[in-house]
Nucleic acid binder design. Structure first.
Lengths: 359, 359
DNA sequence: TGAGCCATTCAAAGCGGTTTGAATGTGATT
DNA sequence: AATCACATTCAAACCGCTTTGAATGGCTCA
């Protein structure tokens, strides 16, 4: 066999330049084709050769150039997360950091990069179109879906594989999603309070154009109705999920002539505000007012260290991130065929913030 | 002039395939070279030609292929953020989401992508080396620097442009950073309390291997010492910045035989826990115990809607994100020459949580 | 009129991989 | 001994852009 890849002279073990395919092939006295195939596990390579190539790749610390791979294959090996920032209040979803942490694990395990675009939410369509036309990602995750969310039809039409974190009531096409069973969680929470004897139960919900908030409300109302209780609009609020909103609404509800004996809050942070309101009125949470929150298990916002402070419906948003990422990679690689759905059940954990109704 | 770029037959206005440079050049009867230069603003292109090219580019919706640009130029047009996830407690920095939101604005305005890697913090070196060797980013932001942070020397050695969000006491090389004047902020907060007559002042700090926590403590102690007060170790705690830590430590401090009349907490969320402890002991914040917090202006954790709840040292972490991103792009493009530093001053805003010392 | 300069444009060689289609050598088959 | 299938390997084209070095033609100036 004669070939032109060998080179005379001494070869340094640690070249200052990044080793590349051509160079590696030359050192091995093989063609770039074969080296590439050997490293990518193609079957038509002699096992002995493959070993030799692998060894050399390691020895010379060869790392294929990502940019070249991307151009050659047409794949981006990256996933996009478009984070909408509410234009009015500039709210960044607090759940986002932990979701990302979970998803990130899965991406790096699979050799994918995670790309973030932070865009004002009146400008999302453009962001997605750009993502597509620039071809920087192979797929995307949709965060914080709203009712009749236009992004779903948009991505479907653009043929970008995507997974929604949450669901969007009113979508006309089927699509892939990972979500918590919000309806069921709030139904169970409400039932739990009813079982404790509570009849006047309040709900401090997130903004009800968000899909999860709609479902939570539905679960809440269903549970009440099933026991013959008509939901009282005065005891249902829909607000941004902040501490101060929880406080404000809490105060208002507690000031009602017939104040609620139990309140369900849509997040830990709202629950903190609610607790403040309760205590400020000289009441005690768990005795005078029972409270249940939904706990996303945010790492910097634990519901107590060992003993849970709040009774809560609990579901790890980080785990949701892992599942969504895994699903998306499945869709991209073709391992899964869309659409594909995953409903995570929340567990109801009993803390110190609930007790029997004393009235 | 004769050239081979023209093509016979009808040309569709909306080709289903993405228009590319060669095709566009052919339609214009120009060489790809000239088209490329026209679009990239090179001077050696006839203005009339440039106009013609721009018009055609718009007309045919030509978007240069990012992957090709990256390979050809060797630039990644992307910036990496490596988010360390504490291996033990899995804390994801809550400040991170808002910082990202600020940085993201600047990146997209400049045509850069933002790449996120979430890595266990015992594995960061590998993450950075990979970032470098795969060449997926042109620069990086270092988050949450610790004392003697090894990442600084590492990135400097690897020759990756980087900006630190915060500073790292004990770094041997100069480096670029954007930071809040934590020492000064806590000094001022302490002085403010001293001026109100407080003598027994507590500090609930973050973990003191974090650089910002060290500086905050320093400012706190300096202010006390300057007034002849010896800092009392029993009134200085260093904990993870969670609600429950604030609560726990708050309870402990308030149970001291000589309890503090004022307490400074390192974050809004710790402050919420502290307030809970205060109220649980039947005391009132602002009257019995004054509280000052540091407020990063997180969008989902506002310090009151209009009137601030807490007296606070305030500094927008989102603005820090913008500044850091801008600085990094400067370093990458060579507009700035490293190292480059920016110290943001926190403002002291007076809320309802502080009052004169009544003892 | 011819040299020199300038403005403008082009052909071709990268960037560093992947992939197609062809070539080579080997042993089995007839 | 000629044929064929099979296992390996290779040369070259390609991905879509940037960039170098050369070519072209018009114009000025001696």
């Amino acid at each position: 066999m004669v070939s032109g890849y060998s080179r005379t002279g001494f070869e340094t073990l640690w070249p200052s330049e990044q080793m590349n395919l051509k160079e590696l092939a030359r050192k091995l006295d093989l063609s770039p084709t074969t080296v590439s195939r050997a490293l990518n596990g193609y079957p038509e390579v002699n096992e002995a050769t493959r070993e030799r190539v692998s060894a050399a790749a390691k020895r010379y610390n060869y790392k294929p150039n990502t940019r070249a791979i991307r151009l050659a294959t047409g794949r981006a090996m990256a996933v996009g997360h478009v984070i909408p920032v509410a234009t009015r209040h500039e709210i960044v979803n607090p759940v986002f950091a932990d979701f990302i942490a979970g998803a990130g694990e899965v991406y790096s395990r699979n050799g994918y990069d995670m790309l973030l675009s932070v865009v004002p939410d009146d400008n999302e369509e453009r962001a997605y179109r750009e993502l597509k036309s620039r071809g920087t990602v192979d797929g995307a995750i949709i965060h914080a879906p709203r009712m009749n969310d236009p992004r779903i039809a948009l991505l479907a039409e653009m043929q970008i594989p995507f997974v929604v974190h949450g669901r969007a009531t009113g979508a006309s096409h089927p699509y892939s999603w990972v979500d918590v069973n919000n309806r069921r969680a709030f139904q169970r929470a409400t039932e739990f309070l009813l079982d404790l004897g509570h009849r006047r139960i309040g709900l401090i919900n997130g903004l009800e154009f968000m899909d999860f908030a709609i479902r939570r409300r539905k679960g809440f109302e269903e549970a009440l109705t099933a026991r013959g209780i008509t939901p009282d609009p005065a005891m249902m609020a829909s607000e941004e999920m902040t501490e101060s909103a929880g406080y404000r609404v809490g105060l208002a509800m507690l000031a009602l002539p017939q104040r609620p004996t139990a309140i369900i809050a849509s997040s830990m942070i709202m629950g903190l505000g609610l607790r403040r309101a309760i205590e400020e009125r000289g009441l005690r949470m768990g005795r005078d007012v029972s409270v249940i929150i939904h706990d996303d298990e945010l790492s910097y916002m634990r519901n107590g260290d060992d003993l849970p402070i709040f009774t809560a419906t609990r579901s790890s948003v980080r785990e949701a991130g892992r599942q969504a990422a895994d699903m998306l990679i499945g869709l991209i690689t073709g391992r899964l065929t869309s659409p594909c759905e995953m409903l995570l059940e929340a567990e109801l954990i009993i803390g110190q913030s609930t007790g029997p109704c004393l009235q």
